[in-house]
């Protein structure tokens, strides 16, 4: 089976203060570290496992700048056969990205196209479904488990409250992958370094025959801002011992102990 994994590099904003650029359109990115989007890591792992079991190839695709090649090298180190970057500044909306990706995918062989179910930055959950629509193939979202059968897959979608629903889906298909579907393998720094020697194919919008009008966004980001303060938690501070004492007093006061 030939699998394409569309992946994205996102800033890791856990445990950091996020600031907004004066333009109001972006967050300040200089001091942030970047990682592969969490769901995408699971989807890459799933793609590579399919190749290991059934043969075929894995192609990793991202849209972005030269820095974004970092996650493609990681994908190659994990076991992807081919990596493609579309050189495009990520302006626009989910529709824009879906149009760009669809043109790349048209030029490739595929049975399955994987996306992460949601991204850790904007979390729109749209690109996978749009690509399926543009290519005119099936789409199944929020998938937690897949069984691979001949010509089709059995995909288990995650619903609310721990419920799942199963579908038989004819291939080719787009599948958007949820976290927890597998245990992504460890990728060593050495492995990523070795992947530097491998080729990353770079495509431009011109190569793809896309004009600005083809990828014009349908929605416009007006401004970014920090959430207004709310009645936040009353903070308990002090030395370790003081904190523990205050917590015990609080729990006693509330009748918990």
């Amino acid at each position: 089976m030939n699998v394409i994994a569309c992946i994205k590099r996102v800033p890791d904003v856990s445990e950091v203060d996020v600031e907004i650029e004066p333009s109001g359109k972006e967050i300040k990115k200089e001091r942030l570290t970047f990682i592969i989007n969490e769901c995408d890591n699971y989807s890459l792992e799933e793609a590579i496992r399919i190749k290991e079991r059934f043969g075929g190839s894995v192609t990793a695709i991202t849209v972005g700048s030269r820095e974004d090649e970092e996650i493609l090298r990681r994908a190659l180190a994990m076991g992807a056969d081919k990596a493609i970057r579309v050189d495009f500044d990520l302006k626009g909306d989910s529709y824009t990205i879906a149009r760009v990706l669809s043109e790349v995918i048209r030029g490739e062989k595929y049975d399955l196209i994987f996306f992460g179910a949601l991204s850790g930055d904007f979390g729109c959950g749209q690109v996978g479904a749009y690509v399926a629509k543009i290519l005119g193939i099936n789409c199944v979202t929020f998938v937690k488990r897949i069984e691979y059968l001949s010509g089709f897959i059995k995909a288990y979608r995650e619903l609310e409250g721990g419920l799942e629903e199963a579908y038989d889906v004819k291939l080719p298909a787009v599948v958007t992958i949820q976290t927890g579907i597998n245990e992504p393998r460890y990728v060593s720094i050495m492995g990523i370094r070795r992947a530097r020697a491998r080729e990353i194919k770079v495509l431009t919008l011109q190569d793809l025959g896309l004009k600005d009008i083809d990828i014009a966004p349908k929605v416009k980001l007006e401004r970014l801002y920090l959430p207004p303060p709310v009645k936040a938690a009353e903070l308990i501070a002090g030395t370790l011992e003081e904190i523990a004492m205050k917590l015990v007093a609080l729990l006693k006061g509330k009748g918990v102990i």
Partner: peptide, 17 residues
């Protein structure tokens, strides 16, 4: 929209349709 893990809010306008 609430983005970046709830640390940022984003106002969007519809440009089309």
């Amino acid at each position: 929209k609430s983005i970046y893990g709830g640390k940022v809010l984003a106002d969007y306008l519809f440009d089309y349709g």
